[in-house]
Amino acid sequence: MILQALLVSLVAAYGRLEQGWMGQQMIARPIWLCPLVGLLLGNLQQGIIIGGSLELIWAGVVQVGATPTEVVTGSTVACGLAIINNLSVAEAITIAIPVGLLATLIGQINNTITITVWSPMANTAAENGNTKAIWWLGLAGCATQALMYGIAVFLAVAAGSAAVNAVIDAIPQVVRDGLSNASAILPAVGIGILMQYSFDKKFVGFFLVGFLLPTYLGFGSVAVALAGVAVALIYFFLKPNEVEDD
């Protein structure tokens, strides 16, 4: 149990370091972290399924500005507990959502540390030309963050299994079915958030084209993306340049 919790916490810490030290290449996400958790806990298959399912719900949740939820912690804790306790995907999702919400607090604590400790130290280092200090200060904020998230995830997984089992057993069957049904409609939230980025009234037709391709022609996800590339190319080459005149 302790070893399993430690392994899950390592994945959570890696997720943080991916964003801070490895360029935030959009892969500190459930779809990549959950398979890693699965691999370390000996159930890769379940990790892939939980990761894909969580990704669909949190597709729209992005790490810019004020984050509504903390996907690294939410997905690693939920996936870890689900695999250790043989929970269903729907039950894993039910754990992930509140954990993700709570974990945003840790980020706020870390931001406070950075602005009160690391940032003033960086000013001194720049004034003194202390390049060694600049080297490690540029990495410090993410290091403290990875450490704090790692510890939190370790505690949650180590302490959580027994509690989670008790809670899940106490949930009536109809509620469990309800949660399972809810996990089918929840991805609509991801879609809604994503539309914020790109939606423009004049593009509504493209949205419908995308919807109709799988609905009536049975296009899979790769086929839709390729059709999208074709349409985007048509748009790019046929639209005349609007030259800014100023």
Binding site: F211, V231, A232, Y235
Partner: peptide
């Protein structure tokens, strides 16, 4: 704008595939 066109098509295509 072309990137947005592509994004709209992909989002539209996600609806029937992921929302049940």
């Amino acid at each position: 704008e072309s990137a947005k066109v592509l994004a709209m098509i992909v989002i539209g295509g996600m609806v029937p595939q992921i929302v049940k």
